[in-house]
Amino acid sequence: MKLKQLLVSSFILVSATAWAEPSYRLFVTNEKSNSVSVIDSRTGEVETTLDIGDRPRGIGLSPDHKTLYVALSEENAIGMVDVATLEMIGKLEAGEDPETFDVHPNGNLYLSNEDDAKATVINPSTGKIIEEIRVGLEPEGVAVSPDGSIVLVTSESTNMVHVIDTAQHKVVANILVAARPRGLAFNSDGSRAYVSSEIGNEIAIIDTKTFTIIKKVVVDVPKSKPMAIKLSPDDKTLYMTLGRAAKVVVMDAESLDIKTTVDVGKRVWGEEISRDGSRIYTANGVSNTVSVVDTESNKSIMEIEVGKGPWGLVIDD
């Protein structure tokens, strides 16, 4: 009996430090039905729908993939869910109107407060707000560099990408980009960042050594409103959602030439890519669906019904 107990507790100890086994769950925030759809990414079946809180938007995982974080914009909080058991663990105070966030390799959350022109840093293990950093108006996209040294934040209504040095939590550079910058993505070594501009209908590449724009192009797709950006695991291909154009554009990540476009649902915003790069998932805010795109054929192979106003998604794979 005692031995068994010892075994159990040592097992817990081990599992607490090791990575969790992938659940292959795809989590989707439904902004207008205050829920998170949980999809088995291997089958496309909706496993369950979680009542999460008011106006869920940004979504992400802890570095060990054990905790799901969801920005609850109208509760000024981040909801936490256990990825394995799907139980609500609790809520973190997040400042006013948290919209989206990214998770630092050390576990801290960097989030944008849309109505408050600031970025907030939260330590989820203590539940404390570590820092509030003043940025431009309507901060939106947030991306932490792969090594965690910098964080980029876009300010939609002042058209900037702010560079925050995570060691001192200060804005160290500002890059003016085309109107209404939204999405951000780093390449895998962090030497480059990509930024989309919704109203300017542009995508730009930023050199993260000089913080200058090294290339930008207007997206030549009818009705295009560039939003979220994901890169293939080899950094060669870029997938960007185009909002009202109801498409994902597939681009060469170096030249920014358009390879093709993929039809997905209406008002496509959020985007996720599987770890192996074989699938793109999009949140289609007006269709109330998630599209699954096969990146070999660049075709949508499935459209999954979710809640109302799907906004963002994250996969545990």
Partner: peptide, 10 residues
């Protein structure tokens, strides 16, 4: 106010 907020950074 908004112009000056942007101006603080730029």
């Amino acid at each position: 106010d908004e112009a000056n907020l942007q101006g603080e950074f730029l």
